[in-house]
């Protein structure tokens, strides 16, 4: 080892890392400052510390409806993503069939291409379906379809990479001991990928909850939380109310995500074939 070189690069890298964190967190700090402030206009310096905007937020029905809509969409899209993404990954990793590579690529497309493409493609198609009378109109349902389509990829990718890394010996042992395909799947394979499914679902939920581009094109007259925020920004009303909403969301989501992270790690370790 060359201690000096190591110290220098450690110091240099540490400085860069600190700057990156500062860059990532500066806006969040600003958000928090304005959320706990009485000022209406968000120019610097802010006014007196206050809980005023949390009070405004609490008494405003619009963001509550918007959050409820966002939750409905995100939960449904996540459930759909798990139900469709997990078997898709399983099929691609455990079966042989024609066109498999191309299919894998197509499934991944919704996150490789920008959201605006998904949004306008579905918008034109749904508009046609509405004209045919198949769909009643744009709504949370159309938004959910849009979200589920990219959420599927997130679960799919996580599960696929986990399946690829797990050895088949456990499954083979299970089969050798007389279990049939389904038993093996339920008792051996599924527990092995549970962590990946949860991680994928968590990511899907997070991205759906914050999604705005696809939503922008596929929504009817309702609001999701990001659309409510966009409306607020564009209409210049009570900016810091947005900051207060953001603080609430961060405060609620951090423990959930930490917990989920903790849970997925536990399952990963306990069911990892390498550990056994």
């Amino acid at each position: 080892m060359f201690p000096r070189a190591s110290t220098v690069s450690r110091l240099a890298l540490g400085t860069v890392a600190a700057l990156v964190y500062a860059f990532l967190y500066l806006p969040l700090i600003i958000v928090i400052i304005y959320a706990f402030n009485s000022a209406t206009i968000t120019s610097w310096p802010p006014g007196q510390p206050s809980l005023h905007w949390f009070n405004v937020l609490w008494n405003d029905p619009d963001p509550r409806d918007a959050i409820a809509n966002s939750l409905k969409v995100a939960i449904t899209a996540t459930v759909l993503a798990v139900l469709l993404g997990t078997p898709a990954a399983f099929a691609l990793q455990r079966f042989r069939f024609f066109g498999k590579e191309s299919l894998g690529f197509v499934i991944t497309l919704p996150i490789l291409l920008p959201g605006i493409i998904t949004g306008i493609a579905m918008l034109t198609w749904f508009t046609q379906l509405i004209q045919w009378g198949v769909l009643p109109g744009l709504s949370l349902l159309t938004v959910t379809i849009g979200h589920a389509t990219f959420c599927i990829v997130l679960v799919f990718n996580n599960v696929l990479s986990r399946l690829r890394r797990t050895t088949r010996s456990l499954e083979e042992a299970s089969m050798d001991l007389g279990a049939d395909g389904w038993q093996t799947f339920w008792r051996v394979t599924l527990p092995g990928i549970r962590g990946a499914v949860i991680a994928g679902a968590l990511l899907a939920f997070t991205l759906s909850f914050d999604e705005i581009i696809v939503t922008f094109f596929l929504i009817g007259a309702q609001n999701t939380l990001p659309l409510w925020i966009l409306g607020h920004i564009r209409q210049d009303t009570n900016f810091p109310e947005i900051d207060a909403a953001a603080v609430v969301i961060i405060a609620v989501s951090i423990p959930i995500v930490l917990l989920a992270q903790f849970l997925t790690r536990e399952t990963t370790q306990s069911s990892s074939p390498a550990k056994l």
Binding site: V31, A245, I250
Partner: peptide, 9 residues
């Protein structure tokens, strides 16, 4: 963490 605080915010 920044991913969980709204993109728009």
């Amino acid at each position: 963490v920044p991913l969980w605080s709204s993109y728009l915010v």
